[in-house]
Computed example of a mutant assay.
Amino acid sequence: MTAEKILVVEDEEDIQELLRYNLSREAFKVTCVDTGEKALKQVAAEVPDLVVLDLMLPGIDGLNVCRSIKTDAALRDIPIIMVTAKGEESDVVTGLEMGADDYVTKPFSPKIFISRVRAVLRRRTEPAPAEDGVLTVKDLSIHPGRHEAKVKGQKLDLTFTEFRILQILASRPGWVFTRGQLVDAIRGEDHAVTDRSVDFQIVGLRKKLGDCADYIETVRGVGYRFHDDA
């Protein structure tokens, strides 16, 4: 099996070496660059399976690198994990809205970092669930056609918005969805939803999920995700 290619974009030597060492130890093929300009040239020269992208870079910053990749039809499917410093919550939200897949905050555990990398690569190869098919995750089953959700076989009494939020989160376990992304998905059905109301909907949804309430994880300052045990 061919080793998956990972491009690390990080200008701090010690962190770059930490990432390179841990990824190489897991048998990934790793290329490291230290500027946004070099990152874009490398991506164009050899498309990686994943980009690990520091947001604070000299020259072209990480957000603009992310934007360039995600707006290029030939490159936009490349998954991106952002590496951020504390206090960059607004940048995290912006990056996720652009299409980045996940993020880790400095300082981070190498073990957790590798787990995030594997989860993102695994999700890249997983087919999206059929819109009209039954989605089953853990003790939860969701039937879009019937607009019905059950926990351990028991039907849940959900509002339209609660059902849509649950369906969106459960369709991609481990993915972080910002409040804005959830709002946009629901507004597509011409329902009035705001960022603040998403929080209230989550509170109500968790109550109805009962023992399974912890399936929905709050990502502080960013949004929500369906808990990924892996």
Rank of each mutant, 00 (worst) to 15 (best):
G180R: 12
L40K: 00
T178E: 03
A192W: 07
T71G: 03
S171T: 11
R118C: 12
N22S: 04
Y21D: 12
R172W: 05
L63R: 07
P79F: 09
D34S: 15
V92Q: 07
Q167A: 11
A27M: 11
D132A: 14
R196E: 00
A128C: 10
A128E: 15
R196N: 03
R220E: 13
K150H: 14
S90P: 00
V176N: 10
D54S: 08
S90D: 04
S171N: 11
I69F: 09
D229P: 05
I112T: 02
V137D: 01
G188Y: 01
Q16Y: 07
L205S: 02
L18W: 02
V83D: 04
C32Q: 06
C66T: 02
A130N: 11
V47L: 14
G62V: 02
V104C: 02
A185F: 12
V33Y: 07
E17G: 08
E126W: 05
S197T: 03
V43D: 08
I165W: 00
E88N: 11
G87T: 04
T2F: 10
G174N: 07
E88A: 06
D199V: 00
G99P: 08
V222C: 01
D11V: 04
Q154W: 07
I69V: 04
P127I: 09
G87H: 02
I78D: 08
E46V: 14
G188D: 10
L63D: 05
L50T: 10
F200H: 06
L57F: 09
D211S: 10
Y21I: 13
C212F: 08
M1P: 10
G153C: 12
G174R: 03
A27Q: 13
P110N: 03
D49N: 15
T218P: 09
S68A: 14
E17H: 13
K111N: 05
G174Q: 03
F160Y: 15
V120Q: 09
V151Y: 04
K111V: 03
E37K: 08
L158W: 07
I81G: 10
D77A: 13
T161V: 15
T194N: 00
V43Y: 01
K152D: 15
V117W: 13
D54P: 09
K5V: 07
V51W: 07
K111I: 03
A213E: 06
G221K: 00
L23F: 13
S90H: 05
R76L: 12
L75H: 08
T35Y: 06
V117D: 13
E12M: 14
L19Y: 11
G59N: 11
E217F: 05
M82P: 04
T125W: 13
Q167N: 10
I60T: 06
H143I: 06
D199E: 00
E17A: 14
I112F: 13
K207P: 02
V51D: 11
V51S: 06
T136E: 15
I165K: 00
D211K: 14
E97I: 05
G36P: 04
E189N: 07
E189R: 11
P110K: 00
Q167R: 11
I60Y: 05
M98S: 06
R118Q: 15
V203P: 03
K155L: 13
L19T: 12
R146L: 10
H191K: 13
G153P: 13
T161W: 03
G221Y: 00
L205Y: 02
S171G: 15
R20C: 10
E17M: 12
D77V: 07
